[in-house]
Structures are given as C-alpha cells and as structure tokens.
Design a binder for these strands. Structure first.
Lengths: 173, 173
DNA sequence: TGGAAATGATTGACACCTGAAGTAACTGGC
DNA sequence: GCCAGTTACTTCAGGTGTCAATCATTTCCA
C-alpha cells in the first residue's frame, strides 16, 4: 500500500521522507542477501576445489594461512579471533592438523595456560603448494570484473566493516 | 617494503604492465578476504540474535523465508537450490521444522517422488514475528552507511554475481 | 599471603553441511 | 510392455560450528 503517492505535484521532485526511509530499509535487506549469496557461491567453489585437489577443507586451510603469516606462532585465542570462530572449534581443527603433523602446539614457558601453535616444516611446505593454487582460483573467479570495480568494492566493504564494528560494540553495552 | 617508490618521475603515470597485473591479482585476493570477513561478521550477529530471541537458527529461518515467498510450497530440490546447500542438508532441517509443526511435507499426486513443503499456519505466524525483528537487525547493522554507498554495493555485487555464474558454468564443461 | 575473579584452553551436546551411496518413482526408446 | 537411465529424496560418516560447563593457571587486591 503506497501512501500519498504523488499527493502534491508541486514537490514531486523530492520524495516523501517516509518513503525514502522505507526504500533505504529495503535496500539494506537486499544488500545483505546479495552479499550472502555472492560469498556463499565463492566459498562453495573454493571449498570444492580444496577438497578435489588437496583433500583438505577451508577451515584447515584458513588456520594454516593464519599461521603462515605469523612465523612465531599464534595462541589458540588469537587463532579463534582471526578466524572469527569460537575457541572450541579451533581446538578441534588444531587437533586434526596436529595429528597429521602439519602443525604443533608448544607450551609457552611464560604462561602455562597458553599454547603457541606453529606450522611444521611439512605444514609450511604443504601450505605453500595450496596457497599458490588457491590464489589462482580466486583470481579466475574475479577475472571478469574490472580492477576499477574491484577497487571500489574493496573500499565500500571497508566502509561497511568499519560501520559494523561500531554498531556491534554499541550492542555490547 | 615499498618498491621503487617514485623512481622515475617521468613515467610515473603508466606503471609497468606486469606490476599492474600483479596488483590486480593481489586486489582480487584482498577483495575476497574482505567480503568473507564482512559477511561472517554480520552472519554471526544475526545468528546470535536469532538464537537469543527466538531459540532458532539461521538455516531454519532461511528455509522458512523461502517458503513464505512461495505460498504454493516448494520441492525439496527447489529449497536446496535456493538455499545453496545440498539436498541431504535440506532433509535434516525440514525434519526438525516438521517435528515442531512449523512446516509440512505434502506428497505431490502427479509425481510421487517429490515432496511439496509448505509452512503451516503456526509456521507462518511464527515466521512473520521473526521476520519483522530480523529486518530491524539488518537495518540497524547498515544504518551508518549512506543509501548511496549501499546502492553502489548492491550494483557492484550484482556485477560480481553475474561474472561468477559465467566462470562457474565455464568450469562445468 | 590468601583467595576470589579473570583468563586460556578443552570437553560434550547438539545443529549444520557435504559427498557418496542407497531407495523409490518416473521416462523414453525399443 | 519392458527395462536402462534419470530424477527426487533419504541416509550415513565425517568435518565444522555454537554454547555452556569445566579445569588449570594467573592476576589482583584486601
């Protein structure tokens, strides 16, 4: 039920404020659904490729990627934060990788509660092999989009990320 | 470690082609990681809200949302496709919702292999209650971003989606 | 110094999700 | 009509994810 449609011809050019707000709300939901659908699609493809080519999974790959960028190792809690999953989950994935010898838990002498997780030499070797291919998949998926559009997307998503952190911490009080 | 920054003022404006390509590749990976991180953040918040306020989950909500838009019901395979998950998964989620009386499986007299899944009256009532709140959460999460930026994001993600479908079907041959 | 509160990690119950294998029902060509 | 092939759904095993409860260690402060 559109309200007051074109009620006053004279001010036709600037739309009724309520309508504008409702349109913006609708836009937010649309944006969210589109983000989700894009991300899911890409994620599914990458996951399938990882499974088919290296018999591994996205979370395992993600954990190793975090470690590769941190040669001195990471605490379980740091992994949890960077991977944006709960601590209990990190325990499980680390267990699996450790069992396969790709990763080690080292006790921190300064604080015996924490584990410092590091890639083994084998883990590093294996990760590098996967990372190269992974990058090619991503590049291929995005190849039809212009650099300009990619740059814009990165920038806009950066904005979004900033705004969400704010809203999210608001919610925490 | 910035390379060759401003080494040759004279040809500063057109960068070496190889460098430009490498930058674009780097950009693709960066874009992918940023999309993933934004989506994960939002998804986590929505999931927590659904759990806290309605003791339900995102996939259950998603399934009901698909049904609400299709009053005549949907086949399991249609649900699977729209939710972008495998068929086996839809079976499980439908089982749960059916057990709670929010959804029914009706046999299609024309083809006894298919189930037509529909919301029950109770399911519809419950979904509408959730949908209203859900919309408010999403709106709140995006409220700090301008309509202009949202519009641009929707458009760019639309482009991306189109491009990926093409790449993805290429892969299928 | 002693003990309450905070912190880092693990565990267990339960839900999700995939891929592969299985069952039942439909279809088309002979 | 028959039956090979396809299609719709289910089942199962195994990995991923949450939350709440637990345990060990550290920190802080009275």
């Amino acid at each position: 039920m559109p309200r007051d449609k074109g009620r006053l011809k004279l001010i036709d050019s600037h739309v009724d404020a309520e309508t504008r707000i409702r349109d913006d709300h609708h836009l937010s939901v649309r944006l969210w659904l589109r983000m989700l659908s894009c991300t899911n699609r890409i994620e599914n493809i990458v996951r399938q490729n990882l499974q088919a080519n290296f018999a591994t999974t996205l979370p395992r790959f993600d954990l190793m990627a975090q470690l590769e960028r941190a040669p001195q190792g990471l605490k379980m809690s740091e992994l949890s934060q960077r991977m944006m999953v709960t601590g209990g989950n990190v325990t499980g994935i680390t267990d699996g990788l450790e069992k396969e010898g790709l990763v080690v838990r080292e006790v921190d002498p300064a604080d015996r509660r924490v584990y410092r997780v590091r890639l083994t030499a084998e883990g590093e070797r294996q990760f590098r092999r996967m990372a190269g291919e992974h990058e090619q998949w991503v590049i291929a998926l995005f190849e039809r989009m212009s650099s300009r559009d990619k740059g814009q997307l990165v920038a806009l998503l950066g904005e979004l990320k900033r705004h969400i952190s704010v809203s999210s911490s608001d919610r925490a009080e």
